[in-house]
Design a protein around this nucleic acid. Structure first.
Length: 356
DNA sequence: AGCGTCGTACGGGCCTAGCT
DNA sequence: AGCTAGGCCCGTACGACGCT
């Protein structure tokens, strides 16, 4: 959307705060190099303040809410609109982009492809404004500030607003992923399922695409920076998808599956889900109970001759299966999930989650 | 590359409440 | 009673994305 005239919103004349002329930032390129305290003031507006706001037009409402969203760490989209008999817009609702929910009919069985991650969480955060014909201003008629989900750290919002980058998709994405990248590297190291040799081979293959024999030292350094940037970006995207989208639950153990979705990265979750699915088809029998220690015998439906023994120390919070799948792959095996199911345990014990 | 899936924007229906 | 507005929901067209 294009920016409008500078006094794009104000308040009723008897209101002291906020004054529209303190907040007219959207089309003033001449002040691009200065601090933008008005953006911070938008971030600090209370619901009561916002309910008093008036705007020059529908576009100004959008610009205001977009800035507000950026300062609070969420993304908006247009929602409901109402027209009068002449076709003029008289009401506009703008919502958090996680508003609504996926249509049920799409979640049907007999799918050809896997479910895409869920990006809607019935978030109620929104603003609704309506044209007041008497004063020819747009008034806020409804405002919800509560979100049904976590928000992205908005600290860099100043910079984004300052350079008018709110509509830049690359900036949006990078901004949303920034803190995740830091987190991924400050946590404990994680090498699950990655051999050092295969890691090196992968990196070598990647670098080959960027480095040539005839490169000067300067070119080499520049190219290496590009390689690292792309490599890290892939990590960021994977981390973002794991943290800010939710997979559709498809197994018959949804509580365990949901816990796994929130605990593991998305790629690892897909592996874990296969084990949970396997556990659904397992027979489990408690064979020994020695104080707090339980010993289970598990076998696949239809294959009773092949047993797997699982030891469960309820006091020590330790689970161990003789198949050593967890020790080898870093994720719990279906036998362990079968025992958790047997014991009506709906969360994955801490000992079965590899920290990174 | 094709196409299944889903996000986005919008139109419109229905119900309720408040005002004239 | 009639009108307008608020709130919620459903359906549809269209396009983007990304899996196969």
């Amino acid at each position: 959307m294009e920016s409008s005239d500078s006094d794009f919103f104000g308040t009723d004349s008897d209101e002291e705060f906020p004054r529209g002329d303190d907040l007219d930032f959207l089309d003033d390129d001449t002040e691009a190099d200065e601090d933008r305290p008005q953006d911070k003031r938008i971030a600090e507006l209370s619901r009561e303040d916002i309910m008093q706001l008036q705007f020059t037009d529908e576009e100004a409402v959008y610009q205001f809410y977009n800035t507000y969203a950026m300062m609070h760490g969420f993304v908006v989209r247009l929602d409901e609109v109402r027209h009068d008999s002449n076709g003029c817009i008289i009401m506009r609702q703008i919502v958090c982009n996680r508003a609504g929910s996926r249509k049920e009919e799409v979640e049907k069985d007999e799918r050809i492809r896997d479910h895409r991650p869920l990006t809607r969480s019935c978030c109620r955060a929104r603003i609704r404004a309506r044209l007041d014909r008497k004063i020819h201003k747009w008034k806020v008629v409804s405002f919800y500030e509560e979100h049904s989900h976590g928000l992205v750290d908005p600290l860099d919002g100043d910079m984004v607003a300052r350079y008018n980058l709110s509509s830049n998709s690359w900036v949006d994405q990078t901004f949303e992923l920034r803190n995740l990248w830091v987190l991924a590297y400050l946590r404990d190291q994680f090498f699950g399922r990655i051999r050092t040799t295969s890691q090196c081979e992968g990196i070598n293959s990647l670098i080959k695409a960027y480095v040539r024999k005839k490169d000067t030292l300067l070119e080499f350094i520049n190219n290496m920076e590009t390689v690292v940037s792309h490599y890290r970006n892939n990590e960021r995207v994977a981390e973002f998808n794991s943290k800010y989208t939710d997979p559709v639950l498809v197994t018959s153990l949804p509580t365990l599956e949901d816990f796994a979705a929130k605990t593991f990265t998305r790629n690892m979750f897909r592996e874990v889900r296969k084990e949970i699915e396997g556990a659904c088809a397992m027979n489990t029998e408690l064979v020994i109970q020695d104080g707090g220690k339980l010993y289970f015998k598990c076998n696949n439906f239809g294959v009773p001759e092949i047993d797997h023994m699982v030891e469960f120390d309820r006091v020590g919070g330790m689970l161990r299966c003789e198949c050593l799948w967890f020790e080898n792959r870093g994720i719990p095996c279906m036998h362990i999930f079968a025992c958790l199911k047997h014991q009506h345990i709906e969360v994955i014990p801490e000992c079965l989650v590899c920290k990174r």
